[in-house]
């Protein structure tokens, strides 16, 4: 395989590739396996990204969950318990690594080692994120591109789970309201912002 590029080149290459389709919608299929390869969870939905700082992750099967980054905050809507959790974009990177992908600022990326292997990038949290009061549960994320579109996102966590999102049916110029969120009536807001 090609020699792993120096980190800053890898980050800039990743961001340049992401910039080719800085706003798109795609369909995703999600499969979660444990350390023994046992399938724990499977789902389908739609993932839309809009650089910088906006994304919409909408799972529809087997049931609904929604995460919206509106450029400033991240809304995690959980219809099953009628609750919305509100976090800042920085806080959310732990909970949803997509929040890192849509960020252009280098200070977010400085916490990660990035290695490019052809059309894929491995993103590994640095030591600082892995220790301390609440260490990152994310051990590694890897993203791959096909025809310059984000085609897969794989997350490995510290307890052996691997989540694989396969993205297809990419369309550019997603609707702007995908990146806005208004809490439904009667839903409790759990504001976790600092």
């Amino acid at each position: 395989a090609s020699e792993a590029l120096e980190k800053s080149d890898a980050v800039s290459n990743l961001q340049q590739t992401m910039a080719k389709h800085s706003q798109f919608t795609s369909q995703f299929v999600q499969t979660v396996t444990d350390i023994n390869g046992q399938v724990l969870q499977q789902g389908k939905g739609e993932l839309s990204l809009s650089i910088p700082d906006r994304f919409n992750w909408h799972a529809v099967e087997p049931d609904e969950s929604l995460i919206v980054a509106d450029g400033e905050n991240i809304w995690v809507y959980n219809p099953f318990i009628e609750q919305v959790t509100l976090m800042s974009l920085q806080q959310a990177i732990q909970a949803s690594p997509m929040a890192l992908l849509v960020q252009e600022s280098s200070d977010a990326w400085d916490n990660y080692e990035v290695e490019q292997l052809q059309a894929c990038y491995q993103i590994t949290p640095k030591e600082a994120l892995l220790s301390g009061p609440n260490p990152s549960m994310l051990r590694q994320a890897s993203v791959c591109f096909e025809n310059d579109y984000l085609s897969s996102l794989r997350l490995a966590d510290s307890q052996g789970n691997t989540t694989l999102f396969k993205l297809t049916n990419h369309q550019d110029n997603p609707a702007a309201e995908l990146f806005r969120f208004t809490p439904p009536q009667g839903v409790e807001i759990d504001d976790q912002r600092p």
Binding site: V32, Q41, A95, L138, S158
Partner: peptide, 13 residues
């Protein structure tokens, strides 16, 4: 018994 977040991150096993 395992419980994950909706994104598949392990909560408890």
């Amino acid at each position: 018994l395992t419980i994950n977040t909706v994104l598949g991150i392990s909560v408890l096993q």
